[in-house]
């Protein structure tokens, strides 16, 4: 094994930390844990059990990793774009809904990525919003989407502020409103919010949907309705950014992305796992 074929990508997100290892282009190891209050010790623990390789960190806690591990850093935007080039070589854009931020990134013919949009400090339209709402509704986070899909129609949700929406949900429950309809309404509102952000970039004909929220089938369905383009969901979408980091680590080990011919579309048609 040489450093040139094995790479570890670390995505220190605001809520979850993801660590993946790629060997010869395949995902061979993956760890996901709560970022929590002390992400570093958990990260070092996980790293200890992993085979060495080229290392790269991204995500909101990337500097923390850099201060304690021999690794370079990139932004989660670049890592996300890099992963999208691999996971869906013919996608024109990528939408990432993570714990506390949501982003939409153009993947033009030339360059690593193009224009991007990110939510501001507000949690509206992020995984955190859905998490708080799941709790208010008494569903586990995993159940929220499937339950919502069983509703016959959505309840209109007026507030996108996490705090206000929570009280709105509580009063809807108190009025005896069906929980699944409320859940569906929450997904629809979130999807509209995300689609509005995505409309500020050129999503093109096909967008890739990654991040933990892409595992939620109701979000996928609602976002498909709101977006003007096709939406592709890869396998393990929550790992995408970490995979992107590992791919960049490999690119760098090979003398930079240009050298591998990578980020340009279609230069390297790689298997794109799909689950749509």
């Amino acid at each position: 094994m040489s450093a040139a074929t094995t790479a570890i990508g670390i995505d220190l997100g605001s809520r979850m930390t993801k660590v993946v290892r790629l060997s010869d282009g395949d995902l061979t190891d993956a760890h996901v844990f709560d970022t929590g209050h002390d992400p570093l010790s958990r990260l070092l623990e996980v790293m200890e059990g992993m085979e060495a390789g080229a290392l790269l960190a991204t995500g909101y806690g990337r500097y923390l990793a850099r201060n304690h591990l021999p690794c370079a850093t990139v932004t989660e935007i670049r890592a996300c774009a890099r992963a999208a080039r691999r996971l869906c070589p013919d996608c024109d854009s990528v939408i990432d809904i993570g714990g506390q931020d949501t982003k939409a990134i153009e993947l033009p013919e030339r360059g690593w990525f193009g224009r991007f949009e990110m939510n501001d400090r507000c949690a509206a339209g992020t995984g955190r919003f859905l998490e708080v709402m799941a709790e208010a509704l008494g569903y586990g986070l995993e159940d929220l989407g499937p339950q919502a899909l069983r509703a016959d129609r959505p309840v209109q949700i007026n507030s996108m502020c996490t705090v206000f929406a929570e009280s709105e949900v509580i009063s809807l429950i108190a009025r005896g409103e069906d929980r699944r309809r409320i859940a569906l309404g929450l997904h629809a509102a979130t999807a509209r919010r995300v689609a509005a952000m995505a409309s500020r970039i050129d999503t093109g004909r096909r967008a890739l949907f990654v991040g933990g929220v892409a595992k939620n089938p109701c979000m996928v369905a609602n976002l498909r309705e709101e977006l003007p383009c096709e939406l592709i969901v890869p396998e393990r979408p929550e790992l995408a950014v970490a995979i992107g980091a590992a791919l960049i680590a490999l690119d760098e080990a090979h003398g930079g992305a240009e050298a591998t011919g990578d980020p340009g579309r279609g230069n390297r048609a790689e298997a794109a796992p799909r689950s749509d």
């Binding site: 932004t75 670049r78 224009r115 980020p263």
Partner: peptide
């Protein structure tokens, strides 16, 4: 940083 990264590769 991402804006600056997006200039790379072009």
């Amino acid at each position: 940083e991402a804006l600056l990264e997006s200039l790379q590769g072009v």
